[in-house]
Design a protein around this nucleic acid. Structure first.
Lengths: 178, 178
DNA sequence: ACGTTTCTTGACCGTGCGGTCAAGAAACTC
DNA sequence: GAGTTTCTTGACCGCACGGTCAAGAAACGT
C-alpha cells in the first residue's frame, strides 16, 4: 500500500490508473479488486492508515513530556519528522482536502490533531503560561504554520528538520514581536 | 472564465470535462478550442488571473499604510476578504500546488506574496519593532497561518472575515505567549 | 486423493474523455 | 454584394480508463 501511495503522490490521484498500480505491484488487476472494491476505497485506506500512523508517532513522542508547552513543541517537531519520512503523504493529504469525496476523512483527522494541540493550549492556560484566548484558534494557527513550513522548507527546499522545527516553534510561541 | 473556475472548484479539475464547461457557458466545444489550446492552458489562465487579482487587491489596500506592521495586518485582512469573495479559488489553488504541472505557477505567485510580507518584516526590523530573525521564515509562517485559518474558519465554518482576521493578526504578532 | 475455498489472472466491456475538423454563420472589407 | 477573415457548431475520433468475470492455480481440510 505504501507502493500505491508513492504512485499517487508522483502523478496525482486521477492520472494514476489502476493499471499502473497493479503493474507496479507486479500483480494482476483482479487481485486489486479482490482486496479493494474500488480505486476510491483504496485511496481512502491509504489516507486513513497514514493518519493513524502520524497520530501514533505524535503520541509516542509526547509521552514523556509533562509541560504543556513542551508537549506542543515536541508535537510540532515529531510531525515535521514524520512528514519528512513520508514525503509522499503531504501532497496526498493536501490533494484530498480539496476533493469533496475525501475531504471529510481528512478534516476528521485534522480535527483530531487540532484537538490534541488545543488541549495542551488549555492546560498551559490553566497553569497561567498563556493568557486566555480561544484555544481552538491558536491550535489551528499552529497547524497552519507547521504544514506551510513543512511544504516550503522540507519539500521545496529540503532543509534539515530540526532547523525548520526550531523556526516553527519559535514563531508559534512568540510571533513577530515578543 | 469565472464560470469555469466555479465548475472546477465544485468538482475538481480532472472530473470536470470540457463538455461540461462549454455546456455551462452555453457555447459549442469548438469555441473553447478557438480561444484556448487545451483544458490545461485554460486552467492555468484561471490561476494566473486570480493570482494577479489578489495581488492587486493587497497592494491597493496597503497603499495608504506607512507603518510596516500595519501593512502586514492590512495585507492579511485584505487577503482573507479576497478569499472570502472568491471561495472557488481557494480549493483550486490548493489543488494546483499538488500537481506538478501547475505547482510552479502557484509557487511563483506564493513566492511573490511571501516576498511582499518579508519586505515589511525587514522594514519593521530596521525600525526596531521586530528583533532580528529570518524574515523569509516569518513571512512563510504568516502565510501559513492565513491560509489555514481561511480554510477552517472562512470555508468550513463560515465565520465573519473580520473576526478571523483579528485572530490571525493577533497570533502572528504575539504567538502563544507574549 | 479429492472437494472446497481462497486467491490470481488478463482479456474484455462500456463509457466518457480531450481534442479535431468539415461545414457554415457573422462580421468586416472595399 | 462578392470576397475574405473571424468565429461557432457539434458529430466524430482514438484512446485509456475503472471495473468485470470466466477460467484456473494454490492452499487447505479431511
Amino acid at each position: 500500500m505504501a507502493r500505491g501511495a508513492q504512485l499517487f503522490a508522483e502523478k496525482g490521484y486521477h492520472p494514476t490508473s489502476v493499471q499502473e498500480i497493479v503493474a507496479a505491484l507486479g500483480v494482476g488487476k483482479g487481485v486489486f479488486y479482490w482486496y479493494f472494491s474500488s480505486k476510491e476505497e483504496f485511496f481512502v485506506e491509504i489516507l486513513k492508515s497514514a493518519q493513524t500512523d502520524l497520530r501514533r508517532r505524535q503520541q509516542a513522542a509526547i509521552g514523556d513530556e509533562t509541560e504543556p508547552i513542551r508537549r506542543i513543541e515536541v508535537g510540532i517537531e515529531e510531525s515535521l519528522r514524520w512528514f519528512r519520512e513520508h514525503r509522499e503523504m503531504f501532497n496526498l493529504f493536501q490533494f484530498a482536502v480539496t476533493q469533496e469525496k475525501f475531504a471529510p476523512i481528512l478534516r476528521h483527522g485534522q480535527q483530531v490533531a487540532v484537538g490534541d494541540v488545543a488541549r495542551h493550549v488549555k492546560d498551559a492556560m490553566a497553569e497561567g503560561d498563556i493568557k486566555d484566548q480561544d484555544p481552538d484558534l491558536l491550535a489551528q494557527a499552529i497547524v497552519g504554520v507547521m504544514s506551510h513550513l513543512a511544504r516550503t522548507y522540507l519539500y521545496e527546499r529540503d532543509e534539515p528538520v530540526d532547523q525548520v522545527a526550531q523556526g516553527a516553534t519559535a514563531f508559534c510561541l512568540h510571533g513577530l514581536l515578543g
